[in-house]
Design a protein around this nucleic acid. Structure first.
Length: 593
DNA sequence: GCCGTTTTCGGCCCGACTGTTTTCAGTCG
């Protein structure tokens, strides 16, 4: 619930911007509350749609509000607009408070139990006075639930099991964990004679940063053989369900993987359907309906006659609907359908466009490998260059380099560059931004370096205002090239520091600085939404692995996924430049400084 | 509550599955 965050904000609403995420959370809460009140489902959906749009929007809702343009947001009509207005103006919303007052605390949590929707939750409340998860569990164990209208023995059993599994279900997997697991299953099944086609689907295929379920789709005319092969894979610990169209297993590393099998001719429509997102699919069906078609996982059909229009490939479906084929990463209903209709989809950056890695560490600071090992590994991956960016002196725990050590490392790098040419190691540093916004090296040290990226590594607890001033000041330093992991978040473990990213993007754009997409799977920082915002502001993105050992160099693709989800093209990403072009860019910066 | 190439009312994505029911409601993805 966004409740706590909302009321914290009230205290400083004049100075602290209320973010899109907070408005989205408010609307989402309202949808939950309306849902448990058994309100008109279309009203519930209207709030959810508005929340989703605002949550994924790159424009600042506060700015739109100031300009009186709230109604221009798709899904925001007079009623929701006036509620957002009240919230932004006063920091609170009467309507929301009333809804909350009418709903017992904890009641909306009941809907997080799979199999329990608003209708049955309301019956539980009326007949048994159940309003919390704990009360529900107790009632289930005492068998007071069976016999209620719509509840039988089976429902009781299922609900109890789902409550017990709830803690596991609510944990989302990092893409960096889920994708390799899916790829292993795919590589094991790909050669099977009954498997005609196979792909990951769902949020994994859209490269969302965290994943709920791992979904794999197979086309086959012999589904039972596929299911046998799947459930007997060596990585499988337990088979949770097995049928002709869908099976689920638990792997030895406790990941649940769902496999669906469809007929070969329906593969394209099934892949489209199972890739989602839900919101993209709903919008796509609207387009189909408007054209007199019907779209489902079985294909695109003429509504009257049922004649097949397209089903074998995803591209055929999009094209038949008058759209450019849309890459999976863009399928979030964030404007991609409109862009596809106008033939204006971006030509997304690819992993193969990446020419170098601009944040790499060695055992000179907290890395595990030598400069030479990192460089040779990067060279073997086909890169033209890396920036060796060991930590600066202030980061004692990471063995940050003193100015003397920087000079020594420079000599080593010059020697290595002679031996590894034409591969190039740029002599760089990841320089700490001190609490007051000054940098952890003075200019005489910085001038010896080819590439300077800066990071916040301490004093995370500063106020939004101070943190923003601190980072903005550091970023404006003429010798600085890029800001690393701009929010400092660690997915699932640590929220980012309180920072006005809109302002940081503005400063970066004004001073020609780059912002990093850090490719470590638990960082992915900037995220997709902010990466898109940066791109739109004309700020160059730099995708780096922040590698601390050889294997981390392979993380590059996760950063590329974020960039793609942020609509970035090759030209938007600094390290797609060839070495020569990058050196020209660096030279130009140096001259300006 | 939103929205409009059937427009200011009457719609709102689609199909499968489950369990409770005798034809369907609720839930899910």
């Amino acid at each position: 619930m966004a409740f706590a965050a909302l009321w914290c904000r009230n205290r400083c609403r004049r100075r602290c911007a209320i973010s899109n995420q907070e408005v989205a959370a408010l609307l989402e809460d309202i949808a939950d509350l309306l849902e448990v009140k058994n309100e008109n489902q279309f009203r519930v959906r209207a709030y959810r749609e508005a929340a989703r749009t605002i949550g994924g929007m790159t424009e600042d809702v506060l700015k739109l509000w100031e300009e009186g343009r709230l109604r221009e947001i798709p899904g925001v009509g007079p009623s929701i607009a006036s509620k957002i207005d009240e919230f932004l103006r006063t920091g609170r919303l009467q309507y929301y408070e009333e809804l909350r007052a009418q709903t017992p605390v904890g009641f909306t949590q009941l809907l997080s139990v799979p199999g329990l929707g608003p209708r049955r939750a309301e019956i539980l409340r009326q007949k048994l006075g159940v309003t919390t998860l704990a009360q529900l569990e107790e009632a289930l164990r005492e068998h007071r639930v069976r016999g209620l209208p719509g509840f039988g023995e089976k429902v009781e059993e299922n609900l109890l099991r789902e409550i017990e599994r709830l803690p596991q279900r609510q944990r989302r997997l990092l893409l960096g964990v889920a994708l390799p697991a899916a790829e292993e299953v795919i590589s094991l099944l790909r050669g099977h004679p009954a498997v005609a086609r196979i792909s990951e689907a769902g949020s994994i295929r859209r490269r969302v940063e965290t994943i709920g379920d791992i979904d794999i789709l197979v086309a086959s005319d012999r589904p039972l053989e596929v299911m046998d092969a799947f459930t007997t894979l060596p990585i499988v610990k337990e088979t949770l369900a097995k049928g002709p169209t869908k099976s689920s297993v638990l792997t030895k590393s406790n990941l649940q993987i769902d496999l669906r099998v469809v007929r070969i001719q329906e593969y394209g429509s099934a892949l489209q359907y199972f890739t989602g997102s839900k919101s993209h699919n709903i919008a796509l069906r609207d387009i189909a309906i408007a054209k007199g078609y019907k779209l489902s996982e079985y294909g695109l059909f003429e509504a009257d006659t049922g004649r097949v229009i397209a089903q074998e490939t995803e591209d055929q479906i999009y094209l038949a609907l008058g759209l450019e084929p849309i890459p999976p990463e863009l399928r979030e209903n964030r404007g991609e359908l409109e862009a596809a209709a106008r033939r204006e989809l971006p030509d997304l950056v690819q992993l193969s466009d990446i020419c170098g890695d601009l944040q790499v560490h060695s055992d000179w600071s907290d890395g595990h490998n030598s400069v030479e090992e990192m460089a040779r590994a990067a060279k073997d991956l086909g890169l033209e260059y890396i920036a060796m960016t060991d930590h600066s002196q202030g980061l004692g725990v990471a063995g940050g380099l003193t100015p003397e050590r920087v000079v020594e490392q420079g000599a080593l790098i010059r020697d290595l560059n002679r031996r590894l040419a034409p591969f190039r190691i740029l002599h760089g540093a990841e320089v700490d931004i001190r609490a007051d916004g000054s940098l952890d090296y003075d200019d005489t040290v910085l001038r010896q370096l080819d590439y300077i990226c800066i990071s916040v590594h301490n004093a995370f607890g500063q106020s939004r205002e101070r943190m923003t001033q601190r980072v903005a000041k550091a970023l404006q330093h003429p010798l600085v090239h890029a800001l690393n992991h701009p929010t400092g978040r660690l997915i699932g473990r640590r929220r980012g520091y309180d920072l006005d990213l809109e302002e940081i993007i503005r400063v970066a754009a004004e001073h020609g600085k780059a912002l990093e997409i850090n490719a470590q799977p638990d960082r992915l920082d900037l995220d997709d939404v902010w990466a898109r915002r940066a791109k739109e502001a004309g700020v160059p993105l730099v995708i780096s692995t922040d590698a601390h050992e050889l294997g981390h160099l392979d993380f590059m693709r996760y950063g590329v996924f974020v960039a793609r989800r942020g609509w970035a093209e090759k030209g938007d990403v600094l390290n797609t430049r060839s070495l020569k072009s990058l050196e020209a860019w660096l030279h130009q910066r140096r001259k300006a400084a």
